[in-house]
């Protein structure tokens, strides 16, 4: 019997009925092909509002692809075919009546590599509201401050808002990207391995931040790091070669996995 290497899951309150409430995102029978290669195979999953849902699984299992389906970033890839439906707030995101830019305003995204624009810190955060064009010039300052506070980076940058964002450290840049994403007040925040390029201290800051942010947003995170999934997520979905293997409360999935594959993965027997 190998030693139990399963990550420790801290106890946390999950509303018992979370999975039964109307979900924020409903994915049903989603399949995706890149050309002839199948990346997702009949994935069905509900993501509850105001919780953190983590997608875990080995490299190439399709977790990032699934995430990028939620704001239709896969549209940018040539030769992509998608079957099945995704509903956000009950609305089909592939509906022709729905403008894809509208969807992306409601479903924000933070990328694996921090990608601030080569502009000032202020302009980075103000980019989204300016694109929306609904905010008067005077209200912009307020939104920028609120977003930077929300991303727990305000105190570090408040004196140099007009400096280039590229002068920030990696962790600060990633939090700036989070501030930029939440400045447009999305419903859902997608995070694609947001800490994979960061040191442990910067990672801890972002993990703390996620626990704050879930009060206001629904968070979906893709991570390689099982400890991270265990620390921050309320629900976890384990994926393997394009299929959803298991989905449930993080605590249950990590302590009493139903599937053999899940157990093998979280105990580090493969992956």
């Amino acid at each position: 019997m190998p030693p139990d290497t399963r990550p420790v899951v801290p106890p946390r309150e999950v509303r018992a009925d979370a999975l039964h409430h109307p979900p924020m995102v409903e994915i049903s029978h989603l399949s995706l092909h890149y050309g002839t290669k199948q990346a997702l195979d009949d994935v069905s999953l509900n993501i509850p509002p105001n919780h953190v849902t983590a997608f875990i699984g080995p490299s190439g299992c399709g977790k990032s692809t699934l995430l990028r389906c939620l704001n239709r970033m896969n549209d940018l890839v040539d030769g992509v075919r998608i079957a099945g439906t995704i509903r956000v707030h009950g609305q089909d995101i592939h509906d022709v009546a729905l403008n894809v830019t509208e969807l992306r305003k409601r479903v924000g995204m933070v990328f694996q590599k921090s990608n601030p624009f080569p502009k000032t810190i202020y302009d980075n955060v103000a980019y989204g509201p300016r694109i929306l064009g609904t905010v008067p010039r005077a209200g912009l300052d307020e939104i920028v401050e609120k977003s930077l506070r929300g991303a727990a980076i305000w105190d570090e940058v408040k004196d140099r808002l007009q400096d280039s964002a590229l002068g920030l450290s990696g962790g600060q840049q990633q939090r700036l990207c989070i501030a930029r994403a939440i400045a447009v007040e999305p419903d859902v925040l997608l995070m694609d391995e947001p800490c994979s390029a960061l040191d442990p201290i910067a990672t801890a800051k972002i993990e703390d931040l996620m626990l704050d942010l879930k009060q206001r947003f629904t968070i979906v995170i893709v991570t390689h790091n099982m400890q991270q999934a265990a620390r921050v997520s309320d629900f976890t979905a384990f994926m393997y070669v394009g299929r959803l293997v298991e989905h449930g409360r993080t605590q249950e999935l990590f302590t009493t996995p139903r599937e053999k594959q899940t157990e093998d993965y979280i105990t580090g027997r493969f992956g």
Partner: peptide, 17 residues
Amino acid sequence: PQGAREASLALGATKFE
């Protein structure tokens, strides 16, 4: 880098913006 374009698109900017 593609990331620069994706970052903008993910914020709801159109291709032209």
